[in-house]
Every structure is written in structure tokens, then in C-alpha cells.
Design a binder for these strands. Sequence first.
DNA 1: TGACATCAAATTGTACACAATATAATTGTG
DNA 2: CACAATTATATTGTGTACAATTTGATGTCA
Lengths: 145, 145
Amino acid sequence: MSASPPELRLENQLCFAVYSAAHAFAQAYKPHLDPMGLTYPQYLVMLLLWEQDGRSVNELGQPLQLDSGTLTPLLKRMEKGGFVTRQRDARDERVTRIHLTEHGKSLRDKARAIPTALLCASGLTLDQLNNLRDQVRVLGENLRE
Amino acid sequence: MSASPPELRLENQLCFAVYSAAHAFAQAYKPHLDPMGLTYPQYLVMLLLWEQDGRSVNELGQPLQLDSGTLTPLLKRMEKGGFVTRQRDARDERVTRIHLTEHGKSLRDKARAIPTALLCASGLTLDQLNNLRDQVRVLGENLRE
DNA sequence: TGACATCAAATTGTACACAATATAATTGTG
DNA sequence: CACAATTATATTGTGTACAATTTGATGTCA
């Protein structure tokens, strides 16, 4: 077996850098989310509900790129945790609407400190972070085409 | 409930751009890996074994940032799939050594076409890709500190 | 209106990811 | 050498992801 070409070396892969950074982010958020009882994907759902409450499962899944197979059990755990309620839409019984509980709403104030803490942990300036975010966003969009 | 501040909006999060791009990568690799019978994390293991065969579980886990809780079942599936063998090291019975099968070795030739296909799908030039990879790698390292 | 396509969620089954714990082999120290 | 500490892997339990299928509600059109 000859030497592996550079394009096949793990350390040279953009995909692995992204994969690895994604896991590192989840770990970096953990100390901030654990005290609230939220996981990282649940926190992403909270961000969407703080922006706009009462979304359907699909209206959460579209921006997150997640389907009901992932969201239904995740939302059930969030319901059990007292963060949200799940109820059928009276006008269209196919739709399940997700509403924040008072506790869920109140967590937004505690969450305000998180972005600053993560900016610091990233070791980037705000400009660098925004620039990198835009590049990574475009990459994701291209890959999904 | 007042409007959510910009720092708490999902679309503005670097973490989400990275999270989303990581999933997009896994999907983009899928059509190339499915015909081989490999999943994306299994492909990462194959990259390491093509570079150097006969690694221990830890010698795979260290570069991948994965522990035996993830790797042991993954490697068992790869063993069942006929890609690798798992056997205890005779000199230190605590260690499990992972070796490529002939089939596993032979897949490297088929994999050579993948990096080019993904570079194309990323919509980036090779220079842009290398530059972005380095930025994302540094980000991951900073977050892990 | 009634058969049929469509749609939104939920369910099922497989595969990561990771914390916490267990097990077994090896090492270090008195 | 005895034995406690360490090390490597495996196991257990919980929580995502996602493909494929199912269930139930809504829309459409002859």
C-alpha cells in the first residue's frame, strides 16, 4: 500500500474542519446551556421561538433544515422540560403549533450573555466572525444545491 | 414579549452556519459514499487508515476527537461491512488494532475522485477552500481551549 | 358527494455523539 | 513481589439526525 495522496489526508479536508468545529461549538455552548437544562439543538429551536412564537413544526424545520423525524422527539423532550407546549392548530388539525411557556420566554434574558461569551471563546473579532459566518453560509448553500 | 436582539437571531449565528454546513457536507458526500457502503464518519476513519494502517482505537480517536463510546460501535459496523478487522494487540492486550481488509484497501482508488467532486460542489476555488479550511480549523482549536 | 391526491406530523429503524461507568491489562511504587 | 493507580477499550443510557413508512386531515375534481 503506497502513501495516501494529499487530497485524501484527513487534515487537509475542509469537510473535517467544519465537522470538527461544529462539535467544538456544541461543547463550547454546553457550560452555558447545561444550567438552563437545554441541549445545543434545543437552544437553536429556542432562538427561533424567541424571534417568533407559535411556529409549526415545519416552520421550525425549514430554517433549521430538520424534518419531523428529528423535531418531533426533540420537541417532546422540550415539552417535558417545561420549555414549550405542543398543540394542534384548531384551524388545521394536521399542524402542531409550538408555544413557549412563561419559563421558556424568561430564559431569553439569561441567554443574552451567551453570544458575547462565545465571541470571546472563538478568538475572533466581531468583523472576522461575521465575515467567516457569511463564507460558511455560502458554502452550505452551495453544497445543498 | 419584545423583539429578539440581533445577537440572538438564528440567522446571525456563526455556530449555526457551521452546524448547517456540516450537515450539508454529510449530504453532499452521501451519493459518493453510498455506492461503497460507507457512512460519512466511517469515511473519515478510512482516510486515517489509508494514511496509516493498523492504528489503535485511540490513534483513530485522537485526530477525529472521538472517544471509544462512538468509535467502538462504529468500528464494529465497519468490521461487519468487511472494511476492517479488529484484533487485540499481542504486546498489549488492552489495545485493539484496526486493520484494513483487502476490500478496504482497494476502495482508496475509488475514493480518489471524491475530493475533486466536492471541491466542485463547494463552489470554491482550491485557494479559497484551503483558506477557509485554515480559518475554520483555527476556530475549532480556539473553541476547544 | 365521494374517490383520490396532497400535506403535516408522527413513527420506526439505523447510525452517530458523548457522558458516565465498567472491565481488564499494564505500570509504578514501596 | 504485592497492590494501588493508570490506561485502553467496551458498555449503558440519552439525545440528536435522517430515510422510509404510517396516520390522519385537508384539498380537488369528476
